[in-house]
Design a protein around this nucleic acid. Structure first.
Lengths: 226, 226
DNA sequence: TAAAGAATGTTATTTTTTTAACAATAGTAC
DNA sequence: GTACTATTGTTAAAAAAATAACATTCTTTA
């Protein structure tokens, strides 16, 4: 009767990709078991937090041994839904769209890239990573004939809302958005903003902090009111 | 005498790029003032939280009016250190590296892309966005003659640690890392992991949740212990 | 000029998140 | 087989973050 069954806290969701990545990397090493302390070392999260996060989903470890790397990786994959097959398309075959087309990350996460769309006639027909770029005019038709789970949006900002509306009308339920404009979407559509420059922003803030600290500036960061 | 002057909480830092982006977009609209309530609408954060975040840095608003869009944008830019000039290089001119070379986001954030490196002879000499790809053999030499603030790392995972070591030895202080492998860096180097597939991961988790919810599954997500 | 309305900045409260502590348990050494 | 060690899963405590509430102040209107 509860409306939000099993609602995983966002803060935990945000750490899952990090656990996933490190467990995946650990597999190429020879380590069979890993302790929460070692994972803490790798991820930068505290061992206590890691044990707590994992215990949210169940109990995966072995006392005095730690976690079986492969088993935990499998479990995390299941928690993240990677064992479910999902289809993704890319809309916008500019430089970023093309880079995403070459992205190796789909398969291991249960995704399959099935088409790329663009409106530029010079790009239409071009084959990238075995997928032929097709005209965005075909979008609705394609979506009618193919169950697509996620649309990656890499069109110019100016076109973003229009495409989004078309996607929504065609029944898409999740958008992975790389355009840096605010999109309006119906409530039932999942929208994931991927701010490509986020890292640059954070680095700038932190370098700025270091600079201010070094100068021994006690002063407020603000510049007074207007 | 405090060691960490003005240490901005990470959680606030993580929202700054979002404020920045929306304020930037608001400028192309005709709105001169924006209220915390309207920003809440745009960002998804509560108005109370937004006012609190801003008050951490100073006082920028006007009672009963809201915030001057342009002024607040400027202030946020200053807080983020965008008024300081920074130089960035890209190492690895594969698809992602090239897409980053075409990225329009540098200038407005105070960055200037000054070089791209690769080891593939077929790429060396190629000009992208007015910048000639040069051999990674020149890396140390280049860094000696140019003050570079940030290195974007888009090399294959296998090469990542070696390049990182060379960057560290050459005195780089910040790395924007797109390789999905764990990098070891000296403590004084800022490392920003940009997990390119993070959005895909989150969407997968959330779609999985919806599926479980729909099935009315009360059962634990875990699959029992080994 | 006074009253009403709007929206900030800030304080108090609540909630969430993290850390710390530890009991339980499995493995190891002797 | 017993003592010792390691490491989990969990509970309790502390810290951090978010929300709610509101006093203040500015603007507008009459």
């Amino acid at each position: 009767m509860g409306k939000e069954l099993n609602k995983i806290p966002d803060i935990i969701i945000s750490r899952l990709p990090v656990y996933y990545q490190h467990l995946k990397n650990l597999q190429s090493s020879t380590k069979e078991y890993v302790s929460s302390e070692e994972l803490a070392e790798l991820t930068g999260f505290s061992s206590s937090l890691i044990r707590k996060d994992l215990s949210y989903f169940g109990t995966f470890g072995r006392k005095s041994y730690g976690y079986d790397v492969y088993y935990l990786f499998q479990q995390i994959s299941i928690i993240m839904g990677f064992n479910y097959k999902k289809k993704v398309i890319i809309i916008g075959a500019g430089h970023l769209g093309q880079a995403l087309a070459y992205n190796k990350g789909y398969t291991e996460r249960g995704y399959k890239l099935i088409s790329i769309f663009d409106k530029n006639p010079k790009l239409i027909g071009l084959v990238i990573n075995d997928i032929e770029i097709q005209s965005v005019n075909n979008l609705e038709n394609f979506l009618q004939n193919n169950k697509v789970d996620v649309a990656a949006l890499t069109v110019p900002g100016a076109a973003a809302q229009k495409i989004t509306d078309r996607l929504a009308a065609a029944g898409i339920k999740a958008i992975w958005d790389f355009t840096e404009v605010p999109l309006k979407v119906p409530e039932d559509i999942l929208l994931e903003e991927q701010l490509i420059n986020e890292g640059l922003c954070k680095l700038s803030v932190k370098m700025n902090q270091q600079r201010l600290d070094k100068n021994g500036t006690t002063e407020d960061l603000s510049c007074g009111q207007k």
